[in-house]
Design a protein around this nucleic acid. Structure first.
Lengths: 151, 151
DNA sequence: CTGTATCCTTAGGGATACTG
DNA sequence: CAGTATCCCTAAGGATACAG
């Protein structure tokens, strides 16, 4: 008879460590990019995400949106005046990851020689990181308000 | 005849954006966890990573180690006095991502109710983020020196 | 100890047609 | 517009066995 090493409960194993938790949410390129779009580019609707240059397919997008909603990163809202209008808003939890996300972008700008991101982005962050983040948060609020006020 | 939409060069498409660049390196749970181990837990050898509680298999580990080496995140060194001893060191580039990585861990500790990470970790970071990071960097140097000085 | 090589199964994901 | 459903293929990756 073949002896197999005890299989520990996978579910439990992947909890209890902050890096594992982060890996569960960010360790997927599509989630990563959706978060970028919703946090930094003001994208809110299904088609917004679908038309991102990276070209995610419909089934994968639906899968990732519900995954992020389940992780309490996105808030799915149906416009009361138009049922066909669905918007995904970043939650407080998602916004709180902005500093780390921006930190990672700044790092990328430094080391990716192909990056088209403006020099000024990294520079501005170095000079006033909190200000930059505050600006982005205010921007998110502004865009959210705008979306639900326009017919 | 069926018309297909023009397939843009995938390779080029995935460059030129800091989030895409970061997604390429961190958008994989195994890379994420290896980086954690090498940056925060002082792990250096093949078996160190192999014995991580998450249980990566040998072929995947080899694949990710070479991927991270190719991305200039890890520096592969053979001990001159013992050829069978191979160590992977975090590069300067890898260390520079520490602030973002730690920021993400702090965020995880806040939002993962299952996290076992010490409360003090998040607290310490809030009080003196730069000090915490500097401490980690010094720690990495210390461990590296130690590894090559011990027989 | 540090990996390769191989086998094999499942999950990821692209393309596309379809639905309310 | 916002998804579901299906087809189908490829890559991911677990479990070994093996090599230097």
């Amino acid at each position: 008879m073949i002896r197999r090493p005890m299989k520990k409960s996978t579910k439990l194993l992947w909890q209890g460590c902050p890096t594992r938790y982060a890996a569960g949410i960010f360790g997927d390129k599509w989630c990563f990019l959706i978060l970028r779009d919703v946090l930094l580019h003001g994208k809110r609707t299904y088609s917004d995400f679908l038309n991102a240059p990276e070209g995610i397919s419909t089934n994968i997008l639906a899968n990732r949106l519900s995954r992020l909603e389940a992780a309490a990163m996105l808030d799915r809202q149906i416009d009361p005046r138009k049922a066909s209008r669905v918007c995904y808003f970043p939650t407080r939890k998602a916004r709180d990851v902005l500093p780390a996300l921006i930190g990672m972008m700044v790092w990328s700008v430094r080391y990716d020689e192909h990056s088209e991101a403006p020099e000024t982005f990294a520079k501005a962050y170095d000079e006033d990181p909190k200000g930059t983040i505050a600006w982005y948060e205010a921007e998110i609020d502004r865009v959210d308000t705008e979306i639900f006020s326009k017919s």
